[in-house]
Structures are given as C-alpha cells and as structure tokens.
C-alpha cells in the first residue's frame, strides 16, 4: 500500500514538473516548484515506511522548512530584485510587466 501511495505522489510530482515546464508565467513555475517541494516532503515520509526506516521523517521535517523558505525567497527576489533591505525598491516592479512572460526558465 505504501508502493501505491509512492506511485501516486510521483505521478503528482510529474504533473507539477509538467506545469513547471509549460507554465506561461513565472508565477506558474514558482507555484509548481512549491507544490513539487510539498510532495517531496510526503514522498520522503512515505519512502521511509516503504523501505522500513521511519528515521527519514526527520529529513522530511527539515525539507518542509527549506521548501517554504525557498519559495518565499524566490518570490521576494522576483518582486524586489534583492534579498536585503527592500524599502527603497518597493515600487520598482509594480508597473514592469516584462517579467511575466519570461519565455524560459530563468
């Protein structure tokens, strides 16, 4: 039964990858990457049971943390163009639509 769940999660991950490749806007890609990350957490958890090593859950827990921080960091970078103090860059991108259709992975 863990095998079936693993296959289902892998299927979902491949659907997310497909969206990541075709996604017309950069936000589709970020969304797909985030979803891929959450599914990775589940995959690690189920995989631990599949091969009889529930210690893998610690890795899943850490991966959940990294995935969230990563998504937020990418979005912040997209919006403000930097990771630091962004108060002075606040309105830089609001009218700039050039980053919507990026045409390829950046």
């Amino acid at each position: 039964m863990f095998t079936a769940t693993t296959i289902a999660i892998l299927l979902t991950m491949s659907l997310a990858i497909a969206r990541m490749c075709i996604g017309p806007t950069i936000y589709d890609r970020v969304l797909a990457v985030n979803m891929f990350g959450t599914k990775t957490v589940l995959l690690i958890a189920v995989l631990g049971y599949l091969i009889g090593r529930p210690d893998f859950l610690d890795i899943a827990l850490v991966y959940a943390l990294i995935n969230f921080i990563g998504t937020i960091a990418v979005l912040k970078f997209l919006r403000y163009g930097g990771f630091g103090d962004t108060h002075e860059m606040d309105t830089q991108d609001v009218d700039d639509k050039s980053n919507l259709s990026d045409g390829g992975p950046q």
């Binding site: 806007t25 936000y27 970020v30 985030n34 959940a64 979005l75 919006r79 609001v94 919507l100």
Partner: peptide, 25 residues
C-alpha cells in the same frame, strides 16, 4: 510535519497570489 505544512501552505499560496496580483497579472 502536518502542522508545518498547514501553516506554510496558505502563506506561500498567498505569497504567490499577492506577487502575481501586484505585478499586474
């Protein structure tokens, strides 16, 4: 893990939606 996913998933969804909306999409 469940609690963490439940807390972070709306935060990142909202971040994506908000970023897309404020970029004019």
């Amino acid at each position: 893990i469940f609690i963490f996913l439940i807390i972070t998933s709306p935060a990142s969804s909202n971040a994506v939606a908000n970023a897309a909306h404020s970029s004019g999409l």
